[in-house]
Write a protein that binds this DNA or RNA. Sequence first.
DNA 1: CTATTATAGATAACAATTATCCACAATATC
DNA 2: GATATTGTGGATAATTGTTATCTATAATAG
Lengths: 167, 167
Amino acid sequence: MQFSIGVEYALHSLLHMVDLPSGKPIGVKELGLFNGISETYLSKVFTKLRKAGIVRSLPGVNGGYELARRPEEISFWDVIEAVEGASPIFQCAEIRQNNILVDKDNLPDSFSKCPCLIKVVMLEAEAQMRQYLANKSLSWLSHELRNKLPEDLNHSIDDWFKDVLTK
Amino acid sequence: MQFSIGVEYALHSLLHMVDLPSGKPIGVKELGLFNGISETYLSKVFTKLRKAGIVRSLPGVNGGYELARRPEEISFWDVIEAVEGASPIFQCAEIRQNNILVDKDNLPDSFSKCPCLIKVVMLEAEAQMRQYLANKSLSWLSHELRNKLPEDLNHSIDDWFKDVLTK
DNA sequence: CTATTATAGATAACAATTATCCACAATATC
DNA sequence: GATATTGTGGATAATTGTTATCTATAATAG
């Protein structure tokens, strides 16, 4: 049970879009090159991010993607949900209905009234994780890394993107 | 991204082992039949549960499995970890090392000193979920269901297992 | 008009999950 | 001791999901 690698691609890419000058979209090609990851797969990931309203696309020459909202308002969970889809981690298969004592075509009232308790526990556990991730924003991540990475690396990164955008 | 169906199989099966008389193991065949799920796959799941020390096996005629610890001391998380394995949900691929500005064979100090911050966030999020699940025990689940399910269904369940064990 | 970029669909390569089968070891019962 | 039952471990098949690529198309800046 794992998150898709697409989540990691998305976060590492979106991170660097925080500080780009507005009105200057960045292409999937550049983001893929910068991160050393598959460009074509990354383009699929960005299509999902766009459909989720996290980024905005600008087709055509010098086009690309830019953040569709302020980075304070883009959380880790927003990104995960966009890339992974909204379905829960624990997909209850309702096997209680397979129980030998239960008639599937005529379920007892207690089943329609109460959801499977195991499912309830799992969903609540997932909600705990979700809450934590919904409180970590892209802008927080960006600031933390500016503080933690060495000055010169931050500088090289800034320069690289400045270079690419003025090509 | 989803938990294996094996987790659901395990929880639904272990649940009914809580109230069995001690010294009376129950077979995978019976548990599979009772829950209406694949017996052969369930046997693989129980092998994992045994290796994790959650159940104890007794081979031979009238053999089967029984809980290896008190149900108060078996948590949802114990079961998940046994079935899914202990590897984290977010398997950081360290793509920061692929970065075009980074020499993979000569990583900057900041990389060896600090783990990828995105990974740190994800692991902490998983820890939130884990903590919740580590606090829900098999005995809690069993008691809750005894209260919530209708009297007659609880009774039929008890009868079914009593029947099977005295065959 | 042309080059560039995102979009969408098809599809391939690969990996993981789910499920089954078989040979074998252990054990209760007769 | 013979036999039937039950777990064990390995091999494998069927199915599904993930990751990655390619192609054709639409949009747009210059």
